[in-house]
Design a protein around this nucleic acid. Structure first.
Lengths: 224, 224
DNA sequence: TTAAAATGATAGTAATACTATTATTATTTA
DNA sequence: TAAATAATAATAGTATTACTATCATTTTAA
């Protein structure tokens, strides 16, 4: 069973809603592929236009600049991840099981239950790992934050924090632990691939040790 | 008591050693100030040249591009931090005390024992928090890593990992916990300032709760 | 003191990050 | 079905960025 999914995004993320037109969806589709292939620094609207088979000017009608586009796709990812989290923890009683799901979602070990035909979520996950932090590591953070651009990230963080509190209602740092878990999952995956000496996982494709590290980190921290 | 300090950097980081000339030191000094003021994205060699009172061409004789310069200054920071760590843990017996020093160093709570007249370490710390990750989050990671550009970061990480193993020789993830601690300290400081809902620290200047969170995270994790 | 090295001044190029204009093609609505 | 409206394509243009090159001048080192 798979569910059709359309995510409604904050309208401040775009000039014209990319989800409303064929061209818009193509922009999203090809930008994910292109950013993954050449990296966000080398990514330009000119190159994207060529991939899409359109023009630079047309892309500028959808997004103010490439940074907004990055924020759009990473934010889309956080929203989708929260959906997945809700779906997969729906029938679970024990917070321990829910936390296991959170960790497996962050390490992409869970079967995706939603279809979005123009978005390759596996490649998107790769972008979030490599480039995702650049969405908020700018001089515009405060302004972007005021425009609620990071709300989906915060919502996800808050939802995870609430699960932590189910397990240990006395725990003093549920949000910090949640954001640390999200960031650490991604950063350790990045290190594992590119700077393995910063981890203890070796370079194999095996994600098991990372999952165990994250479980250890979270459960020990929540223990009292 | 303060110690004069000169850090020898990997020569692949620069074209001409900025530490060997007045102009070079000025480039470092003003780039730290300028990156802090306008952010790495808006930072250009042209603007830097104006600040320094020199020319674009002269700066290009020292650094291949602005990304190399960022890698230079962040790497310098990691080297300096390792020196501080060695210095401040020198006479300590118990690994718990050493870990406390690590956390205080990462949150900039320790008195700096070294003088480097042209480097403002407090501003540099701010840059490492906001921009530091961009040094390795690029398509050049692998190549830069092969050139050993990230060795000081890895050395620091390894040294912290060894302290963890002193406390718990059975611990399976010393390097991952060390890199997680470093990254988390900085990221939580960033969140605290710009996206406080991702933390439990509020927006006050008080670093105490962050320090306690990090202590909790590390000590619980190392507990057996 | 002279040679060598470093810097400054200036110029130039290709690419980036846009904005503007107009023609053409779809889509909506009367 | 025609007319109006909206979206896109094609094209052009500008300021800035990210460099490279050249040569004169100043500083430093042998």
């Amino acid at each position: 069973m798979e569910l059709q999914l359309q995510i409604k995004m904050n309208s401040k993320l775009y000039l014209r809603d990319p989800d409303s037109t064929e061209l818009g969806r193509n922009i999203i589709k090809h930008s994910i592929k292109l950013i993954h292939d050449i990296g966000f620094e080398d990514f330009t609207f000119k190159k994207l236009a060529i991939e899409v088979g359109s023009t630079e000017a047309s892309i500028y009608r959808y997004f103010e600049n490439k940074h907004r586009l990055l924020t759009y796709i990473t934010t889309w990812f956080w929203t989708w991840l929260e959906y997945q989290l809700i779906f997969h923890t729906n029938n679970l009683k024990h917070p321990r099981e829910k936390i296991d799901i959170v960790i497996k979602l962050l390490t992409f070990e869970v079967q995706d239950k939603f279809i979005v035909e123009h978005i390759d979520k596996s490649i998107l996950h790769g972008i979030v790992i490599c480039e995702g932090d650049k969405a908020y590591l700018t001089k515009n953070v405060t302004e972007d934050n005021r425009s609620m651009l990071f709300k989906p990230y915060k919502d996800l963080c808050h939802r995870i924090a609430e699960i932590f509190l189910e397990l240990n209602p006395e725990f003093a740092y549920p949000h910090s632990l949640a954001s640390t878990l999200i960031e650490t999952a991604h950063r350790q995956m990045y290190f594992k691939e590119y700077l393995p000496r910063l981890t203890d996982f070796g370079k194999s494709k095996e994600v098991r040790p990372l999952v165990e590290f994250l479980q250890h980190l979270v459960f020990k921290s929540l223990d009292n």
